[in-house]
């Protein structure tokens, strides 16, 4: 186990997760996380994509991203959360996430994973600023950003095409000095482990 939250744990994105990649990439979770793309992809093309990512990651050096699998406390793989892009000299990191199974949307799982990766990026990687992008119709992420203290920094007009309609791209940022720490944020949000599950804090 790498980082233990209340509803989820962050673990290596290994074979158990990869086996579900085809399902997740072909469902609505990919549509939302990609800003409107509808992947219709085979297992073979997913494998090729994974190989290409691995190759690119090797070439990228210090700016290489970091990917965690997000799993429920009972071990069910739910999706991923990543640092897509690191700029060490500016201590800047971009986050990305996808909860692949829609049954787990809206239950605080993504938020719990987000709090863990924020703490990791500030506490272990010594980042100074985190940022991420979403679209102006992704109400779940917008609400999540607001309650976790991210500031809306830019609205890129008509930057996302989703089912034939143009929507704005939103960019959010969080500075280290604005982050009260995971424990304080858990308290503020009232995040609690589900009954019968042993959620614990990492710090």
């Amino acid at each position: 186990m790498m980082f233990e939250g209340l509803l989820v744990d962050l673990v290596p994105y290994g074979k158990r997760f990869f086996a579900l990649e085809r399902t997740w990439r072909n469902n609505d979770s990919a549509f939302w996380s990609s800003g409107g793309d509808r992947h219709i992809v085979s297992r073979a093309s997913i494998q090729r994509m994974a190989d290409r990512w691995a190759e690119e990651a090797e070439q990228m050096g210090p700016s290489r991203g970091i990917m965690f699998g997000v799993q429920a406390k009972d071990g069910t793989p739910l999706g991923f959360i990543t640092i897509n892009w690191l700029l060490p000299h500016s201590r800047l990191a971009m986050l990305g996430a996808r909860i692949g199974d829609p049954a787990y949307w809206g239950g605080g799982y993504g938020t719990d994973a987000l709090l863990l990766i924020i703490d990791y990026a500030f506490g272990w990687l010594d980042m100074r600023k985190l940022w991420l992008g979403t679209t102006s119709v992704n109400v779940r992420v917008m609400r999540q950003m607001e309650k976790t203290g991210f500031a809306l920094e830019a609205r890129e007009r008509c930057a996302a095409l989703m089912d034939g309609v143009w929507h704005d791209g939103l960019l959010y940022g969080l500075l280290r000095e604005e982050w009260p720490g995971r424990d304080a944020m858990v308290e503020r949000l009232g995040l609690r482990a589900k009954d019968g599950q042993n959620g614990s804090s990492t710090r």
Partner: peptide
């Protein structure tokens, strides 16, 4: 002008803002 990325880039000893622009 579509927004300001606050203290986004390290530049000669400071963290400086980045201004974003778009043209449709």
């Amino acid at each position: 002008h579509e927004g300001t990325l606050r203290q986004h880039i390290r530049w000669d000893g400071d963290y400086v803002d980045v201004e974003l622009y778009g043209l449709l």
